[in-house]
């Protein structure tokens, strides 16, 4: 039943830094009883150097939620706030020797609590996206229903093969194909499965707002900074469009089976959301070009 690494078990059975920090000056709270997991992270930050001196967690949740919280506190102790802001959920998962796909959200919760705690220290408000991701559909690649729905809608996809090209979902054991077909039928009722995938239609940009252009430029610049890393992995990334909080990208991967964190859409989405300080949805607007 539990596919937990030794590191997850160690952090669960012997949690580090459990309990609130005395004289905390930054506290982040995410999750709720309704969600089934919640985390309060408290930090004591040295105001001179902005270094995290102490970190403590209180967590309501499953084994990996507690282990992720414990691992997070170990990672960030001694970091400056700016360093801590670059910690990704993948970093947490890495310290834990990986997490099952169903449990990756636990590491995401850790990163969100960290951002909330730093925002609280700095006297800012932290806003999370609405967590309306829906159930995990493809366990092989950790793709949820929301991602598949939006990708099908944005690109008018009409077959499981097309969904796999865009999101990787369905590219492994194929157990999720029935569910993907159902999403296609629901979102794109006119879909004809035999039809060849159409060229993606560029989505309509949102009505221009004052700083839309600046915002798009920022996203563009951020994507450019991510590209060298992807190119090292023989991949690439291009910005196609920005519509409200949805960022359309074209992603090129070296290998369909490659699970490199930097190549996953959710990884990119997280980096963009973190750096822009607003929740963004990254949706592929072109099939992933896959070499093998």
């Amino acid at each position: 039943m539990w596919d937990y690494s030794e590191q997850v078990q160690d952090h669960f059975f012997n949690p580090r830094n459990a309990g609130p920090v005395q004289d905390a000056n930054g506290v982040g709270e995410v999750g709720s009883l309704a969600c089934g997991d919640a985390l309060r992270l408290s930090l004591r930050v040295d105001p001179e150097r902005e270094v995290i001196l102490e970190a403590g967690f209180q967590t309501f949740g499953c084994g990996s939620a507690i282990a992720s919280s414990s691992a997070l506190t170990e990672i960030i102790k001694g970091m400056t706030l700016d360093q801590a802001l670059t910690v990704t959920n993948q970093d947490i998962a890495d310290v834990l020797g990986g997490l099952p796909a169903e449990k990756m959200h636990c590491s995401v919760m850790g990163r969100e609590a960290l951002q909330a705690a730093i925002a609280n220290y700095r006297g800012e408000r932290w806003e999370d996206d609405d967590h309306a991701e829906g159930a995990l559909v493809c366990k092989c690649f950790g793709v949820d229903a929301g991602m598949i729905e939006e990708t099908v809608r944005a690109n008018g996809l009409d077959s499981v093969t097309a969904v796999t090209h865009y999101t990787k979902a369905g590219g492994g054991c194929s157990a999720c194909h029935e569910e993907i077909e159902e999403i296609i039928a629901r979102v794109n009722p006119t879909a004809v499965a035999v039809q060849a995938p159409r060229a993606p239609e560029p989505p309509q940009p949102a009505a221009p707002r004052v700083n839309t252009l600046q915002r798009i430029r920022r996203i563009e610049r951020l994507i450019d900074t991510l590209r060298p890393e992807l190119q090292r992995d023989h991949g690439d990334l291009e910005l196609v469009d920005v519509d409200g909080r949805t960022v359309y990208v074209s992603l090129k991967g070296a290998c369909a089976g490659c699970q490199m964190a930097s190549l996953t859409l959710s990884g990119i989405q997280e980096r963009l959301s973190a750096e822009l300080g607003e929740p963004l949805r990254v949706i592929p607007a072109a099939p992933q070009q896959i070499a093998c």
Binding site: M1, W2, F12, F13, C35, G36, D37, G61, C62, G63, A101, E102, K103, H105, A135, L136, K139
Partner: peptide, 21 residues
């Protein structure tokens, strides 16, 4: 998980492992 560590086997209505929470 903690009960299991002490050798006690029971089960839970929690669906956390299904990813749906």
């Amino acid at each position: 998980l903690l009960l299991n560590r002490h050798g006690i086997a029971a089960s839970s209505g929690s669906a956390c492992s299904s990813g749906s929470l």
